[in-house]
Every structure is written in C-alpha cells, then in structure tokens.
Write a protein that binds this DNA or RNA. Structure first.
Length: 831
RNA sequence: GCCGACGUGGCGGAAUUGGCAGACGCGAUAGACUUAGGAUCUAUUACCGCUAGGUGUGGAGGUUCGAGUCCUCUCGUCGGCACCA
C-alpha cells in the first residue's frame, strides 16, 4: 500500500540518483542547438546550507529547467567560493589547516545541495581554493600586472581590526563605515597595497549598463558608486606663487568664490600658512588626523575649519581670497582643494555663515532676484550670471560649458571629470587566499613570479596562532625565494588576493574546470577551453543577491572588460541578464539568525515535507525579488497540493479501470471547459516562468489541479481532455517540482524522463472563454451583469443592458444621458 | 540630508492598456466521514447591515463616466549614498 502513497523521502533520492547516473544535466557544446548559460552566485562553504541558499538556488534551478524544456541547451554549473576568513579562524581555533576545514564543509554541502534536486552540471564543479583554480587567478594577476592594471601603492587604506586585514572601499559599508563581513567599524592605516586599476574603466562601466538587462536598482547603485561628475579644473595661485588646483562642477560660479578651502592633509598647507596661524593650523591638522581614526565624516556634524593666514588669487578676476583648511574637504577626491562659493553651495554657505565670510551672489533667482540669500541657491536651469565679469547676463543654463571654453582659451583651467570610484584594493593580510605572485629582490626590485612558476602554492604546514598576523609572514620557506632575474635571495609577497578576485572569473572557470591541470603556465595560454567559451559565453541569465551590487557585480564587469582588452574574451559584459532574489526571513519577519532563534533549518523541513514541497513553498511565498517571512503553516498548503496531484494521478480512474461503461460518456461542455482551463493555464504558467513569477505560476497549477479534482469522479475523467490535462500538468510542474513530476510521469506509463520533454504550447483559441461576464453599471455602480460571447458588439451590449430588470429598476423611467461601453468589460449608464 | 523601492482581508500575497478589488494559499467557522483527528472531503470567510444597500487598497486632495493602478501633497517601512566640491 505504501507504494501508492506520496512519500518524498522514497522518491526524491531515487530520482536524484537516476538523473545523476544518466548524466541528465550534463550539457555539452552543440552548435545545432541554442545555448543558455544559467548561472547562480556560488556559495561560500560555511559548513551548512541555510534556507537562504534554498531561496536563491531552487528558483534559479526552476528557471533553468524551464529554459531547457523550451528547447535550449542549458549549462547550469555550481562550485564553491572557497577562500576566506572563516576557514582561517577555524584553523586558529581547532589547529587544523584551513584546507581541511574547507574541504570537509564542501563535502557536506555537496550532499545538502544535491538534496535540492537541482539540475547542476556537477561534473564541471570548480572550487576556488584548489591550486589548479588559483593558479589561473594568479595568472590573471600577472596579466593585469603586465598590462599596467595591477600596481602597488602606499596610501591610507581601510583596515578591519577584527578581520586583521585591509578592505576595498566597496567592502566598507554604512554610516559608521563598518566591515561588510564582520560589522566592525574600520580604521585608517597607511600601508603599501596592491590595487587594480578599475578606475581606468569607469566610463565604460557606466556606459555598459545600457546594454545589459539588469535590475534598475543595481544599475543605479553602480552609477552612484562610480559617481561620475563633470566640471573643470581651475588653476588658482597662492600669494607666494604656488599653483593651487581645484576641481569644481560649477565653474560658472567662479566669480562668486570668496574663499578657498584645502584638505587638512593638503601638501601646500605648510607653505600657505602664515606664522601667526601656524599653531592653530597644526592643532586643527592633528585633530583631523585623529578624527580620521574614529570618524571624520559624521554627517550632521557642524562644519569646522581654521584660517591659514594665507591668500590665493582668483584667476578669473584677480581677487585676493583667504585660504582655510577644513575637514569637509577630502584629500582623496578631486585635488583636495576647492574654491568656496557660499552663495551657491550649501556646504560653503554653512561654513561661511559660521565664520563670517563673504557670501556673494553671482546667479539671479528665477524671478530675477539679486538680493542677499538666506540659503545657498544652486539652480542650474533658471537665472543669469551677475557680478561675473565677461559673463554678466549669461543665462545659467549652459553657462558651465561656456565658462569652460573661456577658461581653456585663457589657459586658466580645463574641462575635467572626476569619479567617486576608487581603484580596487586587492591585498589581504590573510593566509587563506590566492597568494599575490610577486617577489621583492633587494637588487632587482619588485618582480612578478614567472608564468612557468605558477602557482605560488600556499604552504600546507603553516602555523596558525591567534596573533592576528598572517602565518605566511612567519613561514620562512614560503617567504624566502629566489630572484628570477639575478638568482639572489628574494622575498615573496605575503599578502593574498581579495576573494572577489576568484569570483570575478568563475563563470569562465566552469567551462573547463582546472584547465591545463598540472601543466606549467605560459603568458600566451588561454585560461579555459576556447571552443566551450565560444559557444557558452557570455552568461545569459545570472541570479543572486543584491548585496553584491557594488562589489562582485562591479568587479566581474571590470574583470571582463580587462580580459577583453587582453584579448582573452571578445565581448564586453559577462552577464547579459541579472535577477536579484529577495531575502527569506524568519517566521517573525526578521532576518534569520541564531541569536534571534528564528532559524528554519532546511534539512529539517526537507525531512518532513520533501524537497519538492520546500522548493514550491519558497517559490509560492511571493514575488521572488521581494523575499518574505517563512510561515511554518503555509508550507502545508504546498504539501497538500502535491498530495492532491498525487491522488489525482495515482488514483486516476483510467489507471484503475481503463474502460469505463460506455454509458458514462463525458459531457462535451465539461470536457471543453477542462481543455479551456488547461490552455489558459499553459499560457499563464509559460508567461509567468519567463518572468520569474513562480508564485502566480504555482497558483495557476493549483487551480488546474483543483479543476481536475472537482471532476475526477465524473465521466470527464474518461476523456481525452482529462488525459491531456493530466499529462500537461506534470510537464508544467517539472521545473518547480522535479521529483514528483518525474515519478508521476513514469507512473503514467512514460519511459523517458519528464525533464527531457518539450514544454507544452498553449493554444489561445482553445483558451478563449465561450461566455464572459460584462458588468452593467449605473453611474459607476455595478447594478447587474450580462453573460455574453466575447467580442459582442458595443451596440448589442448596450441594448442588452437596457433590457435588464435591475437596470430598469434603477433607471426608474429615466433614460441615460450617456452610455460608455467597453466591449468584453462593461456598460456604464450615466444619468 | 539626498536618491530609490514599497504600503491591499486575521496572515503570505493576486489583480493587460485605468474597467467586477481580494486569484491562489494559510488561518478561521460550520458540516460530513471517523474510536479519534492536528488526516481527508464539502461549504462559508474584506468590513458594516436583518435585508435593500453601503463602505473599503497608509492618509488628504485632484484628473476621469470609472483609480489599487495616473497626478500633487503627506505619513510610515525598507534599501543605497553620506560633507564627492
């Protein structure tokens, strides 16, 4: 009897095994077939799969399966982003090598991932901490180095005191500038660090957004992050004759500059400062430097600054204006110096108000106002320039461009563009990452490790101590090397690469994992199988969380553009389409966390309901990009649905008694109704799945099954429509509920997998209703309804409406002044 | 402070171009079947009202024959940026 009950614990492992044995999901290059590279952000092997993984992966699997049934050759790989700090922390705690911890976790997670029943191409799995993987990460570094895209710089950098490493700017989050990983506020340090010249691609990273189908949210975040602003660089001079260059987006307000502000760290401060102001300036500089360590940019803090005692000459009008230092001017942006135009800049206005500096209006108000200002007026559209020498009377709209031309003609400045984006800092003072392949030779200087000597391997005997320092620094045989130039002793770089480096190219690694395994590398190698790349690349559909908007998703775009310029790829963007799923929350609507005690363990729920139910429930909660709370009761609904599908199929009257009494002929109208419902469902589900609307697709499947359920005891169950509906229901369930679909598919007598079938075609003619309801309103209120054939003419609808008894009652002898008829929708009679 | 998204039953959420608000599911209520039911099946379930009917998509206005959907203002929640000149 048990064989006839829905028992996911029995059928799910069975089908997973069959699929794997039959290599059902391994796809290979086939030029005859359109390809679809479906990619989902790879997991970090933290040790346990959580509900968030299920929420990210099972819908993306359903989407990939749907594509496959629609005739695409789908490549859907998986791997592990396996470098990172937790492994190192575990090593310190337990004394085991990070590799052991990592590979044990990977092994465990492979099993958990398999239980999802996803169509991953496991044979092409890639693990980023495998030397055969990171040798290519190092090869890319070397390529970037040779191309001038990787460089070393001594500069102030963000440092996380908990992770004991520097971070890229993208990895510092929030108003308290905390570490993206551990939440600790970062501090500033001056250090020698390796960076990638992502800023070289700033404009292209902006422009490229136009050619990819990514969520606007992500595009906006990247646009803001890159922060392109156009303006001018203008050459001021100090009284002592030094050039003091400023950047401004409003060169049209140059005549309104009443003072200048330079960053406290500006190199000219010392020479500008007068003897009398020296003490005050030094004190302010010291205070600013200290603030840096704590929090310089506390947003609503009142502006402060100190007069240097020095003056500059405004090149456009020869005026002598005071130079101040203030911490609201940053050394890291523009030139670290600004002209202050308090009349037309809110920050300068606040500063000038506090210190009693002149506020000179140089743009009239929209109404022509020329009087004193109560607040900064920064409009660019209305008004004209005043007190601006040759530009008096110039409309402010377009004035920026005209002033730039004038500055260039007079050699006082030039048009310039600044970006908020900074170069990508990739050095990490941690052991568990890909070593940066660089050597330092006392006589030959900084040298890249020769290609043939890659990879620079991580030692397997490193000592892990809770000192906070990378074990590579104290590992003599790692650190001591031979100079490839002079053969003398050299020292190895002990910093490793940011793990975002490894994940910037993993979509390529999957094509031919561990390419050229064991072979020495050469500069002219290609880092993956070019035949596979030519067919599969770029990625057609990428899915993952939005938290990577300005990290991974920016880095991988940069990486691809850099590879294109190196001749490695021939396209501009790595991922053509992106979808960001939302976040699954605990039953209390809060983020799942151990401390809150609201964690749902996927292993438990899979054990109770099976993977298909969990998959379906996660997709049923709501729109995938919205996320939402896990409701431990609502999952029952999806489970019941599967039970009912099971019952309909397994207890199919035709399976029990194929020849029903000839007297029990199905009612043709009922049969047509079922067929209609089927085609409506196919059209709906097809459209929904194309757009990741799993929740409404499942609702439609439930409706279809309810329709079947309602007539299963009737003679309709002995009709072609019934058979067709049952068959197509299973086909449509296959992407979301892969196990039960295949099981029932076989129980229906089919021999090849449901996952090898073509997606059904919905027929709009068969889906069309025979009768539709047209609402009859009087004065906008629904008073009656008409049942008519679709497409009934407006005149006919109006005539029929006027004959309705309710209409007669409400009109009460009056005749409508106006009649609005929308065919197939409504008749509105206005009095 | 700036930018963006979102506010719909007790709950998660549905609603082409403006055209029957509340699909589907959870929960709830009643009944059936049962030794039992936290299984299953059937019915009901936005709110007020005995009915007729009225009221309802965060709030206030507006456009329209007609607004969850469009416009203006406003409140709330979430996310991004944070003196970027």
């Amino acid at each position: 009897m048990s064989a006839n009950r829905y028992n996911p614990a029995e059928i799910e492992p069975k089908w997973q095994q069959i699929w794997e044995e039959e290599r059902l999901y391994q796809s290979s290059v086939n030029p005859e077939q359109p390809k679809w590279y479906a990619l989902t952000m790879l997991p970090y092997p933290s040790g346990d799969l959580h509900t968030g993984h299920w929420y990210a992966y099972t819908p993306s699997d359903a989407a990939a399966r749907f594509r496959r049934m629609n005739g695409y050759n789908v490549f859907f790989p998986i791997g592990f982003d396996a470098f990172g700090l937790p492994a190192e922390n575990a090593a310190i705690k337990h004394g085991a090598h990070p590799a052991r911890w990592t590979f044990a976790n990977i092994e465990r997670m492979r099993g958990q991932l398999r239980r999802m029943g996803a169509m991953w191409a496991w044979e092409q799995e890639a693990v980023s901490c495998d030397p055969e993987y990171y040798k290519w990460s190092q090869w890319f570094f070397r390529k970037f180095y040779d191309a001038g895209l990787a460089y070393r710089e001594y500069a102030p950098v963000d440092f996380c005191p908990t992770c004991n490493t520097t971070l890229a700017r993208e990895q510092v989050w929030g108003d308290d500038r905390h570490c993206e990983r551990c939440g600790t506020p970062v501090i500033k340090k001056d250090l020698e660090q390796w960076k990638f010249r992502i800023t070289r691609y700033a404009d292209e990273l902006l422009d490229g957004l136009a050619q990819i189908e990514w969520p606007e949210r992500v595009k906006t975040m990247q646009t803001h992050w890159i922060g392109r602003s156009a303006g001018a660089e203008v050459l001021f001079r100090t009284e002592s004759g030094d050039v003091l260059e400023i950047f401004t987006t409003r060169p049209d307000t140059l005549w309104g500059a009443t003072f200048m502000v330079v960053a406290p760290e500006h190199p000219l401060v010392a020479s500008i400062t007068s003897a009398a102001q020296q003490a005050a300036v030094a004190a302010y500089q010291e205070q600013a430097a200290r603030m840096d360590e704590i929090q310089r940019g506390a947003a609503d803090k009142e502006k402060s600054g100190v007069f240097t005692g020095g003056y500059a000459i405004n090149p456009v009008n020869g005026e002598r204006i005071p130079i101040w230092i203030a911490d609201y001017v940053m050394m890291g942006y523009g030139t670290g110096a600004i002209m202050a135009v308090p009349a037309h800049d809110a920050r300068d206005f606040a500063f000038a108000s506090r210190y009693g500096l002149e506020i000179r209006r140089v743009i009239t108000g929209p109404d022509g106002a020329r009087g004193p200002l109560e607040a900064a007026y920064d409009a660019k559209e209305e008004g004209e320039l005043i007190q601006s020498g040759p530009f008096d009377g110039t409309p402010v709209r377009g004035a920026v461009e005209r002033v730039i031309e004038w500055l260039e003609a007079n050699e006082l400045g030039r048009g310039a563009v600044n970006y908020r984006l900074r170069d990508w800092l990739i050095s990490r003072q941690r052991m568990w990452g890909a070593p940066i392949p660089i050597l330092y030779c006392p006589s030959c200087g900084v040298l890249p490790v020769p290609y043939a000597e890659l990879p620079v391997l991580l030692p397997d005997d490193a000592e892990f101590k809770p000192t906070g320092e990378s074990p590579l620094r104290s590992h003599a045989s790692f650190r001591n090397a031979t100079c490839p130039e002079c053969g003398g002793p050299a020292e190895r770089e002990t910093d490793t690469m940011d793990t975002f480096m490894c994940s910037s190219w993993y979509q390529y690694a999957y094509l031919s994992p561990y390419w050229k395994r064991g072979e020495p590398l050469r500069a002219e190698d290609h880092p993956w199988d070019t035949a596979a790349g030519a067919y599969w690349l770029p990625v057609d559909q990428y899915t993952g969380g939005i938290e990577h908007a300005t990290m991974h998703l920016l880095y991988t775009r940069f990486f691809t553009k850099a590879l294109r310029d190196l001749g490695v790829v021939d396209f501009d963007e790595p991922m053509l389409r992106l979808f960001n799923q939302g976040m699954i929350l605990g039953p209390d609507g809060e983020k799942m966390s151990k401390s809150r005690g609201n964690v749902i363990n996927p292993d438990d729920v899979v054990g109770r309901y099976g993977a298909d139910t969990v998959r379906g429930y996660l997709m049923f909660i709501g729109p995938w990009d919205q996320g939402g709370p896990w409701d431990p009761q609502a999952i029952e609904g999806v489970h019941r649905f599967l039970q009912r599908v099971w019952t309909v199929v397994v207890e199919d009257p035709q399976l029990r008694q194929p020849q029903l009494d000839a007297a029990h002929r199905p009612d043709p109208a009922q049969e047509r109704a079922l067929e209609r419902k089927l085609h409506q469902t196919i059209l709906k589900v097809t459209d929904d799945l194309q757009h990741f609307r799993f929740n409404t697709a499942i609702a439609a499947l439930m409706e279809l099954n309810n329709a079947l359920y309602k007539v299963r005891e009737s003679a309709v169950a002995n009709s072609t429509a019934w058979n067709q509906t049952l068959r197509n229901l299973l086909l449509m369930m296959a992407p979301i509920f892969p196990h039960i679909a295949d099981e029932l598919w076989h129980r229906q007598g089919n021999t090849s997998s449901v996952h090898l079938q073509r997606w059904p075609d919905g027929d709009p003619d068969k889906a069309r209703e025979e009768q539709i309801t047209v609402v009859v309103q009087i004065g906008g209120k629904v008073r009656d309804k008409l049942q008519v054939a679709p497409g009934t003419a407006a005149a006919e609808l109006e005539r029929a409406a006027l004959l309705l008894p309710n209409v007669d009652k409400y009109l009460n002898g009056r005749s409508p002044q106006k009649v609005i008829v929308v065919p197939d929708k409504l008749v509105n009679l206005l009095l």
